[in-house]
């Protein structure tokens, strides 16, 4: 019991389960899944599908945060990659051709990768604080996206492109496969290789890591590049969902949602130890919360208020001070304290 309570995933999972339970009590249809034409539908499926862009962005954000950094530019990068892809499709003679769409996607994601590499260059090589380095692109990125689309909201008709966000494969949304594939690839890269622990080392103590022979620069650079790439993919999914490149609205505030997802998942913004599983739970929590708010009939515009309340609760629950106060209170209630806990947990 104690070990479960001490597990870093305990609170995030509890929050998610509680949200699902509350939703189910409020409307039993919440957990119902219907099959129509071999495809699954239902609020839970929607949550899985809609969470895909946030999942991609949050994965990249987790790694960047683990290096003691932050990537504020993800939303702007999303806008750029969507703008690039849609502009290519719009300009092509064959918007429905698979080749055209593939080229558009690849180029869009590559441009995002370049932007990520640029961020990484500023942070790892020039040595600028991550908040500022990525703020540059956060400010300029949307301007660039607007220039690409010529200041308009580019809309297209392209079935293959639409499939990215709205298609189904084997009964499940294609976007879900994309985000799950990203989770698996990132998890394998971080935890089946030594990248994860080296990233944590760099995040906790960059100079000590460098002296130990860790390629700190490369690891930090790579984290931003990965974040850019994943944000680019998220931008493709987003623009495919609305079939438009809206430089102002694409990925607006997603950097904040992603940071929240990471923090909800138990990864400290101070860098170091990170939990990809926690981030996945965090993303689902945020998406479920958003769907709950919509269900409650609250205008979507007011939903940030609820998000803020959740953030405050979660952050306070994680706050060491509140925890120590609670611990002291519970110790005072107990007649004799049990043996001190032994052994610390091992990172996932």
């Amino acid at each position: 019991m104690k070990r479960i309570l001490k597990n870093r995933l305990f609170w995030p999972v509890l929050a998610l389960v509680a949200l699902i339970v509350i939703n189910t009590i409020a409307r039993p249809s919440f957990i119902s899944i219907t099959v129509q034409g071999g495809q699954l539908y239902g609020p839970l499926i929607d949550i899985l599908r809609n969470s895909a862009p946030l999942m991609l962005v949050a994965l990249g954000m987790t790694i960047v945060i683990a290096t003691r950094g932050i990537d504020l530019s993800v939303g702007a990068v999303m806008a750029v990659s969507g703008a690039v892809a849609l502009t290519i499709i719009e300009g092509s003679s064959d918007p429905n051709g698979l080749g055209t769409v593939l080229v558009a996607i690849v180029v869009g994601v590559l441009v995002a990768l370049v932007l990520g590499v640029w961020n990484g260059f500023l942070v790892a090589v020039v040595g600028i604080q991550p908040i500022i380095a990525t703020l540059v692109l956060m400010l300029a990125g949307r301007g660039i996206a607007l220039l690409i689309t010529g200041g308009f909201i580019t809309t297209i008709n392209s079935e293959p492109y639409k499939f990215m966000a709205q298609g189904y494969v084997l009964g499940l949304p294609f976007a879900l496969y994309v985000s799950m594939a990203a989770v698996v690839v990132v998890a394998l890269l971080e935890r089946r290789t030594a990248l994860g622990v080296l990233t944590e080392a760099v995040g906790i103590n960059p100079e000590a890591s460098r002296l130990a022979g860790v390629r700190s620069r490369g690891i930090i650079w790579g984290a931003y590049a990965a974040s850019g790439l994943l944000a680019g993919l998220a931008g493709i999914l987003y623009s495919s969902n609305i079939m438009a490149a809206d430089a102002n609205a694409a990925g607006l505030y997603i950097e904040l949602d992603a940071i929240l997802a990471v923090v909800l998942g138990g990864t400290s913004l101070m860098g170091g130890k990170f939990s990809l599983a926690g981030t996945v739970v965090g993303v689902f929590t945020i998406q479920t919360l958003k769907s709950t708010i919509t269900f409650l009939g609250v205008p979507p515009a007011v939903s940030p208020l609820f998000l803020a309340i959740v953030v405050v609760i979660v952050v306070l629950v994680q706050s060491p001070r509140l925890r120590s106060v609670l611990a002291r209170a519970s110790q005072a209630l107990r007649p004799r304290n049990s043996s001190p806990q032994g052994g610390s947990e091992v990172a996932s």
Binding site: V197, N205, E207, A208, S209
Partner: peptide, 20 residues
């Protein structure tokens, strides 16, 4: 500041340079 990685375990600290 330039040696120990405080929040990693002794095991991870000892193997860090070799792993790198």
């Amino acid at each position: 500041t330039e040696g120990i990685i405080g929040e990693l375990t002794v095991r991870e600290n000892i193997t860090l340079a070799l792993q790198a």
